[in-house]
Design a binder for these strands. Structure first.
Lengths: 229, 229
DNA sequence: AAGTGGTCTAGACCACATT
DNA sequence: ATGTGGTCTAGACCACTTA
């Protein structure tokens, strides 16, 4: 029974999923599986390694490979740029800059991003529309110490998101999702009622240990973030 | 310069992140990189493959490997069992069954899960507490055709989640997150005010193409789901 | 002390997409 | 037709963990 690593992985997955190897089972070692499937150990290793990455099995040297008791449930979300998200739905994208202000970083922001006293930031409020309907309210703070160029950038035509991707393409981020009630101003922008439940994403971004930006994205009522796993 | 695949990956990542290889750049091919780093091509392949999985580069046969224009933003969330999530915070976990009813599946549920006319389901409402405080309201529907055993199970002591993990350990799922306003009954259970903005997760689960369960998880006010990427 | 997975090597063949 | 990544092989050595 010759097998490439995909077929092998699929076969092992079947044995686990269908209960032939129930949770807790110790799987045969790599050498034995290589013999059973007439392939090299490296091939078995690749298949098993990927199953481990997916959370289906747990591997330990000397202890061997076991089927996980509680399957590790993990989901992957892709986080597109708003423009792409909207255009992917076949809707027309429109952007508007609502407010733009250079100021001292408020205390909560300095704490969150680890900025020093008297740090200057650029505060932007922007709207993103899909087919003319409010889609997302973007409340963004950019660390001017890390990105002095931002002070000279005009965000009237292009959103800060796309500007930032150009300026700092690769970075580390912490993201979180929550629900919040719309305050009156947000409600006006998103054409909803004050107190409406909105989905919010927050993201803090760093590059080389230096804080770049913090943003709150408040979505239209009824927004859902979906994935499969 | 000898290198294991981790060191190699880190070095390549640095060149990308620091702008030595800006977005769009065509990277050297695997053979050349293997020569530069004095290692086997398989080692280069592993490093590059992982960078591709992370969305940093894009690989095509014959075309070579390029730095992605827009970094693929994707985040991974682990989806723990409520009990584990609560106990991981150092809080005491308590579970309570609120309601339990066997009934015909309502139309919206049949549509969502693809059930036939007259399908029977078990409807459960449960509460999960952390240190005595309401943490999560679980509104669950189980397809009795797929899991007849559920009818005989007593969910008074153990939550359906843990029972299901035993009965159907590995499955496919679709999950989505959204915000909703608390209805009066939900508000009573979660000790909040009707209309409060709550974070909700919904999950539909299948096993071998057959619908198993649909669940709505409404979280305490202020709940945040966080990750890094 | 011994068994397991983790990784590397050198070579090979193949599939694919571009030229 | 050609160059690139994708994968497999057979062998080797090592690192970690448990018995």
């Amino acid at each position: 029974m010759k097998a490439d690593f995909r077929a092998l992985k699929q076969e092992l997955r079947q044995r686990i999923v269908q209960g032939i190897w129930p949770p807790g089972t110790l799987l045969p070692n790599e050498v034995d599986l290589a013999a059973e499937f007439s392939c090299a150990r490296a091939t078995v290793n690749r298949a098993m390694r990927e199953l481990a990455e997916e959370g289906l099995v747990e591997r330990k040297r000397k202890a061997g490979t076991r089927v996980r008791q509680a399957p590790l449930r993990q989901a992957r979300f892709s986080i597109p740029l708003v423009r792409q998200e909207i255009e992917a739905q076949g809707a027309a994208y429109r952007y508007a800059l609502v407010r733009r202000e250079e100021q001292d970083a408020p205390d909560w922001l300095r704490a969150r991003l680890g900025l020093g006293l008297g740090a200057r930031v650029l505060h932007l409020i922007c709207m993103h529309y899909a087919d003319g309907n409010p889609y997302q309210l973007e409340d963004r703070w950019i660390n001017l110490e890390a990105l002095p160029d931002a002070a000279g950038a005009d965000f009237a035509a292009t959103g800060p998101n796309e500007w930032l991707v150009e300026a700092v393409p690769f970075s580390d981020a912490e993201i979180s999702f929550s629900a919040l009630a719309a305050d009156p101003e947000t409600a006006r922008y998103l054409s909803c009622t004050a107190g409406d439940a909105l989905f919010m994403a927050e993201r803090s971004t760093w590059w080389e240990e230096q804080a770049i930006t913090y943003v709150r994205l408040k979505f239209q009522r009824g927004y859902r973030m979906t994935t499969r796993y």
